[in-house]
Design a protein around this nucleic acid. Structure first.
Lengths: 256, 256
DNA sequence: TATTATATCTCGGGT
DNA sequence: ACCCGAGGTATAATA
């Protein structure tokens, strides 16, 4: 249902109903926005897209860019009122306490729909999938490597993969599916330290990723850690062979 | 301008025009979405909001939640075509190479507007602001602390604040405006290590934040680092006194 | 261009 | 409720 308003009170009535009935509400109107909570911001008058979702999530988008300029997550409660020639939308969230106030002026365009969407969303190639492929194919890292546990808890933290090399040394493995940077190295270092502390034995630490930054390389050296480059496409092909026709999408991707 | 389409070709014509003229285009329609690039995903049929912005940013939102289920940043080029009873929107981005294909079926609702928004956006209380207040008021951390540099470069990294304590020991300070976790401690640790390496002297490392996680506390102890809790409101009040009426918004916030 | 660090990050999973 | 880690993170600053 689409409506366009110049009259504030008519707009108010329609917006209230749309939000109360938990419809997806898309508004295009000139507005100002104030926010305070974890941070604080002020946005002066301009035309924006305001998207209010069925669970109360609210996003305010300027005409460009990926990110909303202001927003409130789904936990917030939304109130609409009118006064002084504007519509005031107040979205409040507790824990953390955050308040967002948008003041809309005419012309106010509103598109309001109940959306039906229970479809499945499948994501391939996330980190856990890469990890599981390595778990099944430790030979891609090195010969004789035996992986005995995934998400092994070491000092309250969980290491992606844990096992022993051909000489029986414990090995901690941190897997990244994107270029590994200093942060990734530090994460591995933390696991190695925890393991050393709790077992008394210094393990090998291997960072596994398709690439690494220059800084990561230096830090690896400094901290006595190792790096093993993996080709994600090859890993996916290994997996695709396993499922053998079970997942055409993965096969398709691996050809790209 | 709002239109609703059952006929594919009419919808195609309108959408093409809207996107070519670089209007903000809001579409509500049943659709499927395929994506591959850094990752890969598949979303089956359901009703969604598709937002195409004036710079080519594209977001596909399901009826709930803050995040878009699929998207393409502003760097992408967008093509629209029709066939087999659907409208196909293809958004391609290079570097990294990523492809998103959305297939829309009727009824297709489209709201198309050129938005004018050159307004200023002001953000208060970001990390750099907190850092600068501490720079001006080192006494909030400890007596006799002398801060001599901000964003000091140590081994290619830049430390938030650098100075000397009353005994002349070098001090590296990492500032967080949210609860500090293990990541923050590791970041500070990295600076301390770099400083030690390049100067041969072990500096004190102080993590400054309004709160810290339990894990952060443990890691601080292990790595021989310190923590100093700060009250953000007090800091802002210090700043507000300085500017003395210059920024009412900050004062307002500090009362909240 | 590559790297680093921030974000009102959000979100999910675990304890 | 807290904590941790992933994300197709995006985005800005910096070298």
């Amino acid at each position: 249902m689409y409506r366009e308003f110049v009259d504030i009170n008519e707009a108010l009535k329609f917006l209230k109903e749309s939000i109360d009935l938990k419809r997806v509400t898309v508004i295009i109107a000139p507005c100002t926005v104030e926010y305070y909570g974890r941070g604080s911001s002020s946005l002066s008058l301009g035309e924006r897209v305001i998207l209010i979702k069925q669970d109360g999530a609210l996003l305010i988008h300027r005409p460009t860019g990926y990110q909303p300029v202001n927003w409130q997550p789904a936990t917030s409660s939304i109130e609409v009122k009118s006064g002084r020639g504007v519509i005031e939308i107040t979205a409040v969230r507790n824990d953390p306490r955050e308040v967002l106030v948008a003041k809309l002026s005419p012309p106010i365009k509103v598109l309001s729909c109940k959306l039906i969407d229970s479809a499945g969303f499948t994501k391939y190639l996330d980190e856990s999938e890469v990890r599981d492929i390595i778990l099944e194919h430790p030979e891609v890292l090195e010969d004789g490597l035996r992986i005995v546990e995934k998400e092994k808890v070491v000092g309250g933290l969980s290491v992606d993969l844990f096992g022993y090399d051909k000489n029986g040394n414990p090995v901690l493995i941190e897997v990244k599916r994107v270029r590994a940077d200093r942060e990734a190295v530090l994460q591995l270092f933390k696991y190695v330290e925890e393991y050393k502390k709790s077992s008394g034995v210094k393990p090998r630490g291997i960072l596994v990723a398709p690439e690494r930054s220059r800084g990561a390389l230096e830090l690896l050296k400094e901290l006595g850690l190792e790096f093993k480059k993996v080709d994600l496409r090859k890993l996916w092909r290994l997996k695709a062979e396993e499922v053998e026709g079970g997942s055409r999408s993965i096969l398709e991707f691996s050809r790209k």
